[in-house]
Design a protein around this nucleic acid. Structure first.
Lengths: 241, 241
DNA sequence: TAACAAGCTGCGGGTTTACGCAAGACGGCG
DNA sequence: CGCCGTCTTGCGTAAACCCGCAGCTTGTTA
């Protein structure tokens, strides 16, 4: 007997998932649905759900937040993330919250029926991690170093994206002013903010700090959800003086 | 006899739309589908489509871009935008490209079947504009002045979001340096960047410029698609010396 | 243990931002 | 016409930012 919880905004996708679960998991006898992260968390708690399919980006409370609190309460929960996009921001967000040894998956909505069903079985039955090929690529790149970003670089990227001053960042991260600026420089370097600036004449130069954020956005290193989470963390920190 | 073109990423939504069109418009005998903006444009041209349902945010070429080129070729085309979100950025983007007197609509994906079908009939048969209540609110706010943004303020917001320096903005918009900075100040004012900054002591102050962009993002004044379009325009301008 | 790369930090200075102050310019309106 | 509000511009200043240079602390490798 197995129970599966589906957390997904869009009614169409929700019913599609429902069918997919029924088809892929005959051993599953009950499927419950939640239409956003908040009720998702609640249902997971009430039903002690061990098998969850979760959409990222939902209006009320996004999948990453929901997954975090769920995993905090029951780290052995198996969660399959089912998302439209493979932004590095999402991938980073997810891999930062998955508990040690937990089984989880990440498949794109553009994947075929087969892939989805296979992933469902692999994760829920075999407790095996299944990460979409495309997503996998990002993961490699971001954890390895090649053309990817260090955690500290990513951290400072988020900080300037939030609009903190150098001084504020220094205080927050426990660094000196100069160190913060060092990190900024290497960030600018990696994001290629210089070349796009007016190379020869100072005709159309960019504001490096602002440009870096934009470039990061355009490259999907950042997205709305990541900003939202970072902002929440920031407020938390501000309140805690 | 009527032909309807559907431009939509998601196969699920596409087939849902297909059914909705069939149900709402018995006089429609052919429905064609495109899975992104690029082929949407092409099909619209080939079939001289006069009735289009268009998703915003698609991977290859987003709905606003596609609609713009379509309307440029055939301004009397009726387009119903069908979107997940009602970000001010989208609303602004759409209302900037709709030709004078054209019939168009904007309904949210969260709307009921009834609403969608009604909108289809109103726009395609009656040539009447139908704008979702929620979206309407934004439109009012942004075109009127109450708590909304002037075009010039919005313009400069985009410019700093792109990462331009004050000087570059001045050159681009044909203003003096000081004027640019004036507009920035009133932007900061409206975005409430000050209060959130460290009120009393200079403990955790914000970089106003960067913060403004973030706040705009969080308030959905900007989004990825808007940035993308702005970036394209910028490149165009840069190339044109 | 020596050597070396990588990261942190202070110093100094050139540039860019943020913004108060004040002098025009333009467009209504009584 | 004169008054007034809005927008533009120049000047000047304090702060913030970008960054080269050089001295230190680490963890790593020979």
């Amino acid at each position: 007997m197995m129970k599966v919880l589906i957390v997904e905004d869009d009614p169409l996708h929700r019913s599609y998932l429902h069918e997919a679960v029924n088809a892929a998991l005959p051993e599953c006898d009950t499927v419950i649905e939640a239409e956003n992260g908040t009720v998702g968390e609640k249902l997971a708690r009430d039903h002690k759900s061990a098998h969850i399919v979760m959409d990222l980006q939902m209006a009320s409370r996004n999948g990453i937040e929901a997954a975090r609190t769920i995993w905090k309460e029951r780290p052995e929960t198996r969660i399959l993330f089912w998302s439209n996009y493979s932004d590095e921001a999402y991938v980073r967000g997810v891999s930062r919250i998955v508990p040690d040894g937990a089984a989880y998956g990440y498949v794109l909505k553009s994947a075929s029926d087969e892939r989805l069903k296979l992933a469902l079985r692999s994760i829920f039955i075999e407790s095996q991690c299944v990460i979409d090929r495309e997503v996998r690529g990002l993961q490699q790149k971001s954890l390895g170093q090649t053309n990817g970003f260090t955690d500290s670089e990513y951290e400072i990227l988020v900080d300037i994206a939030l609009g903190l001053t150098d001084r504020a960042i220094a205080k927050r991260r426990g660094l000196s002013l100069r160190s913060v600026q060092n990190r900024l420089q290497q960030l600018y370097d990696k994001l290629d903010v210089y070349q796009s600036a007016g190379d020869d004449h100072e005709d159309g130069r960019f504001n490096l700090r602002a440009r870096a954020v934009t470039v990061a956005f355009l490259r999907k290193l950042l997205n709305y959800s990541a900003l939202e989470r970072a902002e929440a963390e920031l407020q938390e920190w501000l309140d805690g003086k």
